Amino acid sequence: MKFEKALVHGRLIKRYKRFLADVELDSGEIVVAHCTNSGSMKSCLENGAEVYLTPNDDPKRKTRFTWEMIKINGDWVGINTGIPNKLAFEAVENKLIPELSSYTYVKREVKFGDSRFDVYAQNASEKCFIEVKNVTMKEGDFALFPDAVTTRGQKHLKTLMTVKQQGLRAVMLYVVQRSDVSKFGPATEIDPNYATLLKIAREACVEILPYQATVTPYEITLTKKLPFVL
């Protein structure tokens, strides 16, 4: 996924009220950027770190910029939670994920019951619902999800199990937007209920696909599947 606009470089002053961040641009101007990430952003927040923002000229927007990434320990970490959905859709549509390469029809944001899944795909013999999550938290060599308690995420796992029970394919796709990890797992200490549900979902044959993305100021690409420990 290539960025449509040239990103603007700056340094993080602070993140606050969850959805806002003060950033000092290279010009010295201090701006307020929208932070799409509602989680704690544990292990990817560092005041003074380099960041990149997407400029926005929509007069209806309260902020002129959207925060895309931050440099932590020399590597870019993608913190925009909207990016993984776009990445996943493009990857399935273009057959870039081997496990999901057999589909002839792909659509975003499809309802199932009282839930809405990020990607739906089908071919002549199979229908597949795919939920996508953004992963930014790091602990040792592990990328962990979630970084805050997520009742919504728990609901998605339960609904994926219902999808599977109805004879359809159910996939939980984790997009790890950082390159300094080599494994994936649930953040049991942060949300033990989610971790337990993820294990139950796997036992119910919901497929778990953690894919690592390479993040740069020009594009973000899915690169490889990570091993996982549940």
Rank of each mutant, 00 (worst) to 15 (best):
M69W: 08
R61C: 13
M69I: 13
V32D: 06
L12S: 00
K14L: 04
W67N: 01
H34I: 07
S43Q: 04
N37Q: 04
G28N: 06
A49N: 01
N56T: 12
E68H: 13
K62Y: 07
S43K: 00
T54R: 14
H9E: 14
F65V: 08
Y16A: 08
T36L: 07
L7R: 05
K42M: 10
T36D: 06
L45F: 09
G28W: 07
E46Q: 04
I72F: 02
S40I: 05
I72E: 04
E29S: 10
S43G: 02
C44A: 11
R61Y: 13
Y16S: 05
Y52N: 02
E46T: 01
L25S: 03
S43L: 03
G39D: 07
L20G: 02
R15T: 11
T66G: 07
D26K: 12
K62N: 14
K17I: 12
K42P: 03
E50H: 05
S43P: 06
I72G: 06
I72A: 04
T36H: 09
K42F: 10
H34P: 09
M41Q: 12
C44V: 10
I30V: 15
I72L: 09
K42A: 10
N47Y: 00
E29M: 14
R18G: 01
M41I: 05
S38H: 10
P55H: 02
S40L: 08
D58M: 11
K14A: 05
K60V: 13
L20V: 09
K71T: 03
M69Y: 05
G48E: 07
I72R: 03
F19W: 11
V32C: 09
T63I: 09
T63A: 06
V31P: 00
V31H: 07
E50M: 10
A33Y: 10
S40Q: 09
L45I: 07
D58V: 14
T36S: 15
G48T: 05
G28S: 06
N47T: 09
A49E: 02
R18K: 14
M41K: 00
C35Y: 08
M41Y: 01
I13L: 08
N56W: 05
L25C: 00
S40F: 11
L25Q: 01
